[in-house]
Structures are given as C-alpha cells and as structure tokens.
Design a protein around this nucleic acid. Structure first.
Lengths: 335, 335
DNA sequence: TTATAATCTGATAACGTTACCATGTTAACG
DNA sequence: CGTTAACATGGTAACGTTATCAGATTATAA
C-alpha cells in the first residue's frame, strides 16, 4: 500500500495541511519544516494521489481526444500536435478511435464524462448524436477539429477547405484542364461540402461549366477512390483529364485504380489531392497536394480547448480557420 | 454543478447506497425502487463520478501508453491495437510521446503514477532510468513493447527480431549477395542487437564472413539511413550489393540517398528493411520487408497488461515473442 | 408453526486530498 | 509600548463514491 499524506505528516511531525503545502508549494512553510517534510516524502517514497486531488479540486488535468482512426496519418499528426500542446501545460490526453461510428462516439463520450475529463477534442462523425448535443448544452469545454457537426454550434479549428479546393482546382484549370472529376467525402461532412464548394467556385470563376456528373461524394476511404475511378474510366464520356481526390485515402484508391487500369500519372491523367502525408517515407514526393498542416491544427485546437478550460465563465464559440497551402509537384501535367 | 448520487437518492426517496446499487447493478434492489431511481437519474441527468469511484475502489480503468513518437506509423499501428484491446475491456488509454528522451519518459511516468493509472505500456528509450527501475521494484503492472530495457526484467511483448533478420539476410544470400550492409539501430537497443545477431547468424550459416565494416549502428531515423548510405557508397570497397535497413525510417533515408546518388533499386543496389508500413498509401508496394505485425503486437501487449492488472497477487514476468514474416517484393535482385 | 434463507434497504465509515477558518508567533511601525 | 502585518501551523469539513455491517421483511423449508 502506498503511503499517504497522513503518514508523511506523522513522520515529519507536522499536520496534513503542512505536507500538502510543501507538495503544492502553496501558503507559508518555514524552510526547516519544508526540509523535514521533504525528507519524510523521500524516505517513504510518497507519491501524491491525484485521484483525491481531482475529487477535491474538480479538475483532472486530462482531456479526451476522439478521432475516427489514429492509424490515418492525418489524425496521427494532429494527435501529436495536441499531445505536445497539452504536455506543455501539464495535461494528459486520452485517445479514442470511433471508426466514424456514432455509437462508439457516444459510448466514449459517456465514459469520459464519468471520468470527468476537463474537456473534449472531437473529430465528429457525420451524424449529430444526442450525446454530442447534450455535451454542448451542458457547456462542457469542447473543440471540434477538422469538421463541423451538421447543426451543433461549438468551437472548431479547421483547415480552409474551400480556399484549398479553390486553389487546387484553379491550378488544374491553369494547366488547361476543363474536365476535372472531384472525388469528395461524405455529402454530409462539412469538409467535403466546402471542398466541393471551392471546386465549383473555381470552375465558375474561370468560365468552366460545372458538370454534376463529375462530382462524386462518398466515404473518405480508399474504396471510394478506387471504385469511383474505375467507374469514371468505364462510363464517363468525355473522360476527365484530371482527378481531384478529397483526401489522401481517396487519393491512394485513385492511384491504385489508375495503376490497375494500366494508365500513367500524369501522362494519361493528372491527379491532385488534399493532405500531404507521405513526406516522411517518400524520398521524392510526387503528388501535388493541398497541405492542411495537421500538426499545427492539432496544436491550435488543444490551445483553444485549454483556453476554454481556463475561463469556464464565458462560453463564447470560436472558429479558427487555418490557412492551407498548395504544394505543386509532379502529378499534374499541362494539356 | 452536476447532481450527485445524494440528489438522486433524495429525489427517489431512497438512500445513497440504493442508488449506488442501481447504478452498478449490484446487490438486491426491488424492481419498483429500481424504476424510481432510474427515473430520478434520468430526470436529473445524473452522471456517476468516476473520480470518487476510483478513489474508493483504487482503480482508475486507465492505462498509460508511452511511445517515442506516435507519428511513426509503426507506433501508430501498435497504438491502435492497444486502444482496441483496452476498449473491449472498458479501459481508456493515455498517450505519451517521449521522443526517445529519458527525461520525458521519467516525467510522464511520475505524473501518471500520481494519476494512479492501472498500468503502463512502455516502449523504453535506450537508457534505463531510475524511475523505470523503481516502477518495476514497486511492482506496478507494466509491459514493455518492442524493446527490452537494458537491465530491467519485466514483461515484454516483441517481434522476433533475430529470426526476422536471419530470414531477411538469408533471402539476400539466396539471391547471391555476399556483401550485405546492415544499418541497424542504436547499439544499446535490444531490437538492433537482435537484428544484428540474426544477420550475423545467417552469414555464418551460409559460410559468408561477417565483415564488421558493413555493420552500422545508429539512430532509428532517416538521417542515419541517409548519411550512412552516402558514406557507404563513397568509402567502402568493394561496395555492398545489398542494404538491410533496420527499420522503415532508416529505409526511407536509404531510399533518399540512393535516389540522390542517381542509383536505381534494385538494378544498382538491393534494399530490404524491417517493418511494413507503407501498405495503406501505396498502390503497389515495392519494398521487400520483414513485417512485425504491429497491430497484433499492440493488441497482445495490452491483453498481457490487462491480465497482470487482473491478478495483482502473482508477479510473474512473461515474455511474448511474436512471429514475424518476410514479405518478398521487388526491391532485391539476383546477382 | 417455527427456523432458515433469500431479498431488500439503510447507517456509518472510509478512500486521500485541499479550502476555509482559526490561532499563534514574530517582525515592523508609529 | 501597543498595533498591525506578515509568517507559520493546525483542525475540521468537505469532494462523491462504495464496503461493511446490520436490520427488516418476505419466501421457503422442515
């Protein structure tokens, strides 16, 4: 059994509170008493119990991070940014994976509410659940990352999808492309709505008619990229000369489909995508992308959450839209 | 302020314990009382406080996961396996990144000890710290992942580095290579020791003299792979015909160096590595690798830890060595 | 009918901290 | 020299649960 503050106090011949003051460096303690207490702590191997501390203080110094899948490098990088920001402030991060399942999200939120985490950082699924709604109503500190829920208003940190998509589309147009297929995410997801909007705006801005049959919503996964690309090359005429993948998983599917079709990038078709994730393992990156700086996104989101945890009094919603950057590489050609 | 069990009890006209029984489904409660209590819980929006529960029960249902860098896909995948295993048992995971710094490791361990996590899952740095030693002495439930610390004896789940390296080297030898450079990890790291040992054993087994000038220890990072490869091609004669990279980061550095030298894989040099990490974003993987199945590794480690947390009585150390698999692709050629 | 077991409910005392208030003691000031 | 302020320490009561024990009621068995 671990020694408690009580044993330390007995050994040092002082009261509980005095030990508490030494441990927390609060209030007045004479240097001799402090030394005696510290010696007792040392001798007994006393480790303060933060459970009881949390109970008393109503603060756990733990936040929850709920993402769809940590295995996706986009979320991994965000996670790292969050963990770094929290570590600097002495908070810990509980990690949860929902696999985009609203049930898992609700389940996690409920147990973490019981654990009395100080706040939530959530990448929402595409459905607004009652649990999420009640979280906001209860004014639990909460910051969404990357995506808006559909109807819930709360703080969010996200990349500028609309402008990113605009830039990417404009770049393709500048290369002479006029039939550009966009493989976007779920119709309900705010990110894919914004990316589609940016794509449309760029087309309109450059006098290119938006062809609805070139806009494909689907999941943010490889299958969507793969099957949709196969479909495009089998059924759409005239064929698009460029494909805009809504995220890197979709892009991977697009790559695979093009490979399987025996086509070459960019000779036969140009490809560009959202998110720059292969940098670490690729000696010479090839894909033209819009980088959303996920590390910065995570770091910023954590800071915003910590700020909200700090001022529990005012409940203002803040929306931070981070700039994105078009990185031109070698996957798109002039036509 | 959140309602407590006390308010629920008052509203339902029962005692605290009765509410506790309803919430935890323990002991005897008549169905009418249960219904009344449940209604009160519903009406008040009562959320049990697990802080006080943990204080009473001396159990937090939280474990700590300490890795060097979650951004490395190897650790990401392990993490996912761990989180899944813990989720199944209703535990949560606190994530920590050490960047291989012993100070950060100690710092994390200390705060998590204060937070009274139920156990630790640690990928140790190369140094054994006092904190780590005392953790084992205190018999805190603990499982190491991937690597042994140098001197500490505790439970561990790891891949079979020795056999993996043996198979990989033997494969290269079977292709006719006899000058094989190995870019291993830190000399002190158990994994790199074992990989080097497997490499040597394969050489000896096939009557190939082990040339110490072909063995390069260094960090498990891209720089080591890059600079060492450049050095090799500038200074070593006769040049090796194959390079064995100790992990995927080293492999990335090797790739980049070879690219910068204007050489081609496998025409000019064969390359093979530990860890298969690019699968998700690569349509047609190219690199021949030893797969350590990191998801399985994480899942297994978490299960072992949970088992240890379950039986606090006996403190037996268990070492689980997971099989690895050589996956032959296209980065090595016959010479 | 009585004895025993099963069912139901509650009072009290922890779990290990810290906030709040109270009480000294010493130093500083007019 | 008395008054105030800074310094130093402690007692008590929370924070919100659950384990332990105990008592009461009902059902079952002998």
């Amino acid at each position: 059994m671990r020694p408690t503050i009580r044993e330390v106090a007995r050994r040092a011949g002082v009261s509980l509170i005095t030990v508490s003051r030494v441990v927390n460096n609060s209030g007045y303690v004479s240097s001799e008493t402090r030394a005696r207490v510290e010696e007792a702590i040392q001798k007994l191997g006393y480790i303060p119990n933060n459970i009881s501390r949390s109970l008393r203080l109503k603060k756990t110094n733990v936040i929850a991070l709920i993402v769809s899948d940590i295995t996706n490098p986009f979320w991994t990088t965000i996670t790292r940014g969050i963990e770094d920001a929290c570590h600097e402030q002495g908070l810990n991060v509980i990690l949860c994976n929902t696999d985009e399942s609203p049930e898992k999200l609700d389940e996690y939120v409920n147990v973490l509410l019981q654990k009395r985490v100080d706040g939530f950082l959530i990448a929402p699924t595409t459905d607004d659940t009652d649990t999420l709604i009640s979280l906001v109503e209860q004014e639990v500190p909460l910051v969404f990352i990357d995506r808006h829920p559909q109807t819930i208003r709360a703080s969010i940190v996200r990349g500028d999808s609309e402008v990113g998509a605009y830039k990417l589309t404009e770049y393709l147009i500048s290369l002479g492309h006029s039939r550009i297929a966009i493989l976007s995410g779920p119709e309900k997801a705010s990110t894919s709505q914004q990316r589609t909007a940016g794509y449309k705006r760029a087309c309109q801005m450059h006098q290119i008619a938006v062809d609805p049959s070139l806009i494909f919503c689907g999941e943010y996964n490889q299958e969507h990229g793969y099957h949709t690309t196969l479909n495009i090359f089998e059924q759409i005429h005239p064929k698009p000369t460029a494909i805009f993948a809504g995220n890197s998983l979709i892009a991977a599917g697009v790559f695979k489909a093009i490979y399987d079709l025996g086509l070459k990038i960019p000779a036969d078709v140009s490809v560009a995508a959202f998110d720059d994730l292969t940098f670490r393992f690729t000696p010479e990156p090839f894909l033209t992308v819009v980088d959303q700086f996920p590390y910065q996104m995570g770091y910023t989101a954590a800071q915003l959450l910590l700020k909200q945890i700090g001022d529990q009094t005012k409940t203002t919603y803040e929306e931070i839209v981070l700039p994105v950057e078009l990185i031109v590489r070698h996957s798109c050609r002039q036509v």
